[in-house]
Amino acid sequence: MNAGDVDMLPPRGRKRSALLLLPVLLLALVALGAPLLAWDQPIVCRHDGRLYFPALVVAGQNVPVIGGFLRRDVPFRYPDFVARSDLDATAFALWPLIRFNPDEYTDEALSPPSRAHWLGTDDRGRDVAARMLHGSTVSLRVGIFAMLLAGALGIAVGAVAGYFGGWNDGVLSRVIEATICFPALFLILAVLAWVGRGVGAVVVVIALTQWTLVARLVRAEFLRMRGADFVTAARSYGASPLWIALRHMLPGALAPATVTLVFGVADAILIEAGLSWLDFGVPAPAASWGGMLRSAYEQMRSAPHLVWPPCVAIFVSVLACHLAGVWLRGRIDPLAK
């Protein structure tokens, strides 16, 4: 069949339905708005004739950049409100669905699911449902920032190796292979010793182990395009190597790299959960699914109900990221299987 006849056909790629994006959008909404769903202060309240937005401000603080400009609103917890509302007739408050702070210890440790605590409480008496919702913020943040970092590193290394080829490629390919072979546990310990524990450390660790995927992909794309006629054309009218790499080759490599990165977010969420389970991850008070799973594992006999929420949360979020990756791949390359 010659090319012209193929051109005549309508696009035959199975167009991915935008429905595939729904889970990841929901996940992102939950991660951004976790304090609106579970917090011990109201979303909006009037008190002493003034309006306050405590939970909304906490949610705002999760957003990068804007978060820095927001100050915590007046602390105002449920029991206080119940006590005060008797005194102040004009007071009102719109409460989140779950009126517990995910990090707050209470005396009701290891209680089974009830009307107050929908998914029960953990060994420190914290509300499991609230922790599960807030865990999505940590997971998604780690996943996205780790992949942004891995993407930047991988694209830079892959582009240099693929564009210049020769000894550059030789050296950088060995670096990539060495990274792949390097024992991940040593790397983790080294980075933790260097940066200290925290979300930042987890992001760096995941980026340092995952960038090679993108680097190899971008390198292969650049190598493939290096001999392409459109690159020869750009050389023939005097375009500089940097111009050719950035303007002619990078856009072609960026599309497959982005797909890999979206799938990579799912991997990063899994790795973060694994690290937190091993207690190398996000430090203790912060809600993280891996950490929740760890404590649930320790309390398996006395409180088996604690195992399910983090497992389901990890499964659903990994699946959501995968579906988003499938959608994106369908958009970028409609003929991919």
């Binding site: 392409a228 006629d229 459109f230 020869t232 054309a233 023939s236 005097g238 002619h248």
Partner: peptide
């Protein structure tokens, strides 16, 4: 300048016609 045999390969598939033709001007 060079004119190619197979324009399907010598034109960057991710650039629009306008950008392709304008690129030499921008380079210089």
């Amino acid at each position: 300048q060079l004119i190619f045999q197979d324009a399907a390969a010598s034109l960057n598939p991710r650039m629009r016609v306008g950008a392709i033709v304008a690129d030499p001007l921008r380079v210089h």
